[in-house]
Nucleic acid binder design. Structure first.
Lengths: 109, 109
DNA sequence: CAGCATCCTAAATGATACTG
DNA sequence: CAGTATCATTTAGGATGCTG
């Protein structure tokens, strides 16, 4: 965005976790290291384009490590860095809020 | 988005707080009720278009109330609902994470 | 398997001008 | 004051096809 993003430290979180998929990917990685196709499988509907794009940004911002194993077939493992793992309380707070929403559908998640 | 958004309850938070301004507006409203121009003043760079759009969506989702006083000049006050106020822990968690980021700029915010 | 290249859509946002 | 209307920009995301 062209926005100056002046307001506060929260902005740092917002630019990184921009877009709905970003948060969901982090949420999956909080469960442990994942390969590319594993992430695709656990995130129904995501396109490889989007997944790659988000993972690259996470790498750049230092919340995810990418480990490529030079094998046949190739194997690439994505894992949260310590900084990335510190995002768990934020995700938990989001989930807690969503669960507390009264009329919005099935809170059974 | 055309996304199915199937994953989890967190998605409810994500669709509502979509875009960088959305979270920042809620953050300001957590400090208390605000008038339209007050919000504009506390959110440098936001356009009235964007502010109106976000506030309308917050109204629709039941996290903000809009109170219009039929006076001259008109006065409209936006205030978080109880559900909206429950977003505070989430915003706090975001801010806490951002403050914990080591190399990202001035953590003095 | 793990992408990348290319084209396209939708939505959030911005700029500017105007109104009840 | 509190918006609305219109136009343009930016970007997340999707679809498809191809490669190392």
């Amino acid at each position: 965005m062209t926005t100056p993003l002046p307001t506060c430290g929260v902005a740092r979180f917002l630019v990184l976790l921009d877009g709905p998929w970003a948060t969901l990917i982090v949420r999956e990685l909080l469960r442990g290291p994942h390969r590319f196709t594993e992430l695709r499988a656990t995130l129904p509907g995501i396109s490889p384009h989007t997944l790659t794009s988000r993972l690259r940004q996470f790498e750049t911002h230092g919340i995810v490590t990418r480990t490529a194993h030079a094998e046949i077939p190739p194997r690439v493992v994505y894992e949260l860095t310590p900084l990335g793992r510190e995002l768990r309380p934020v995700l938990d707070a989001m989930a807690a809020w969503a669960a507390a929403v009264p009329a919005a559908g099935t809170p059974a998640d």
